[in-house]
C-alpha cells in the first residue's frame, strides 16, 4: 500500500529522464511528453472522448440500441417526436427508432473512415517516399500524377466514380480513397526530401543498407507523425464526403442506417417533423468535430512549431 503513490512518480521520472538508458526508454519518454502536451489541451481531450464514445457505441451497438435499426413499428410509432416514451430521439416515417439507427450507423461511419485511411495513407506514403528518395524522372512522373489528382474537384470526381461503379458503400469507399491519397504523397515527399541528404541517412547507406531498406526503415518512420496528424484531420472531411454521397443516394442503400442517407429521407418532413433530419446531422457534426479536435491537438503536441496556429 505504501509504495503505490511512489510508483507512478518514479515511472514518470523514468519517462521524463533526460538521460534515457535505452532506445525504448527514449521513445516512450518522447511519446509521454507528447501525451502530456496533448492532455494539457482541453479541446483535444473533448475530441478524444467523442472518438472513444464513437468506438464503444459502434462496438456494442447490438447491446446499446433499444430497438431494431431497420424494422419499425409502422402502426404505432410513426414520426414520434423526441422524448416520446421509449423513443429518446423520436422515430422516422417508418416508425423506426432514430437513436437505434444512429447507434448502428456509427458502425458504417467508422468502417468508411477506417477503410479509407487504411487504403490511402500507405499508398500516399509509398508514392511520396519513393518519389522523394529516388528523385529524377521517377519523382517527376509520380508528382505529375499526384498533382493532376490534387487539381481535381474531390467531391465531383467521387460522384462521377460512384455513378460509374454503381451506388453502394464499398464503391463510395473506393471513390473517396481514389481522391484522397495525393496530399499524403505530397507531404511524404516533402519530408523525404528533407531527410534524404541528412548525415544519418548517409551513414545508413554507407553501412550497405539497400534503398528499399533505407526507405522502409529510416525514411518512412520520419514521415509517420505528420502523416498521422493529416489523416486524423482528413477523417472529418471523409465523413462529410461519405455523408454527402449518402445524402445524394450514392452511398449506403436503404434501409441501412447511414447518417447521410437518413438526412436525405428526413428531408421530406423537415417542415413538420424536424427531428428526423436533424438528429443524424448532429451525429455527423459531433463525430467530425471529434476528429478535427483530436487532429488539431495531435498537430500541436507532435509538432510544437505549429502550436497555437
Amino acid at each position: 500500500m505504501t509504495d503505490v503513490p511512489a510508483a507512478p512518480r518514479s515511472t514518470r521520472a523514468w519517462l521524463l529522464s533526460d538521460r534515457p538508458q535505452s532506445r525504448a526508454q527514449a521513445r516512450l519518454g518522447r511519446a509521454y511528453i507528447s501525451w502530456l502536451r496533448f492532455a494539457s489541451n482541453p479541446l483535444a481531450l473533448v475530441g478524444l472522448a467523442i472518438l472513444l464514445v464513437l468506438v464503444l457505441v459502434a462496438a456494442f451497438a447490438n447491446i446499446l440500441a433499444p430497438h431494431s435499426p431497420t424494422a419499425g413499428d409502422l402502426a404505432g410509432a410513426q414520426l414520434l417526436p423526441p422524448l416520446s416514451p421509449g423513443y429518446l430521439l423520436g422515430t422516422d416515417d417508418q416508425g423506426r427508432d432514430i437513436l437505434s439507427r444512429l447507434i448502428h450507423g456509427s458502425r458504417l461511419t467508422l468502417t468508411v473512415v477506417l477503410l479509407v485511411a487504411v487504403i490511402t495513407a500507405p499508398v500516399g506514403l509509398l508514392v511520396g517516399t519513393v518519389a522523394g528518395y529516388a528523385g529524377g524522372w521517377v519523382d517527376g512522373v509520380l508528382m505529375r500524377i499526384t498533382d493532376i489528382f490534387l487539381a481535381f474537384p474531390k467531391l465531383v470526381l467521387a460522384l462521377a466514380l460512384v455513378a460509374a461503379l454503381g451506388p453502394g458503400i464499398e464503391n463510395a469507399v473506393i471513390a473517396i480513397a481514389v481522391t484522397s491519397w495525393p496530399p499524403y504523397a505530397r507531404m511524404a515527399r516533402a519530408e523525404t526530401m528533407a531527410v534524404r541528404h541528412s548525415d544519418y541517412i548517409a551513414a545508413v547507406r554507407l553501412m550497405g543498407a539497400s534503398p528499399v531498406r533505407v526507405v522502409l526503415r529510416h525514411v518512412m518512420p520520419m514521415c509517420l507523425s505528420s502523416l498521422i496528424v493529416r489523416v486524423t484531420l482528413d477523417m472529418a472531411g471523409i465523413i462529410l464526403i461519405a455523408a454527402g454521397l449518402g445524402f445524394l443516394g450514392l452511398g449506403a442503400q436503404p434501409p441501412s442506417p447511414e447518417w447521410g442517407a437518413m438526412i436525405a429521407s428526413g428531408r421530406r418532413f423537415i417542415l413538420d417533423q424536424w427531428w428526423v433530419a436533424t438528429m443524424p446531422g448532429m451525429a455527423i457534426l459531433i463525430v467530425s468535430l471529434g476528429f478535427n479536435l483530436v487532429g488539431d491537438g495531435l498537430r500541436d503536441s507532435l509538432d510544437p512549431r505549429e502550436a497555437g496556429q
Binding site: 462529410l240 447521410g260 446531422g281
Partner: peptide
Amino acid sequence: LIGYSVPIFWLGL
C-alpha cells in the same frame, strides 16, 4: 472548427 465539421447540406436544410 464547426465550419470544418458540419455537413453543408444539413446546415442548409
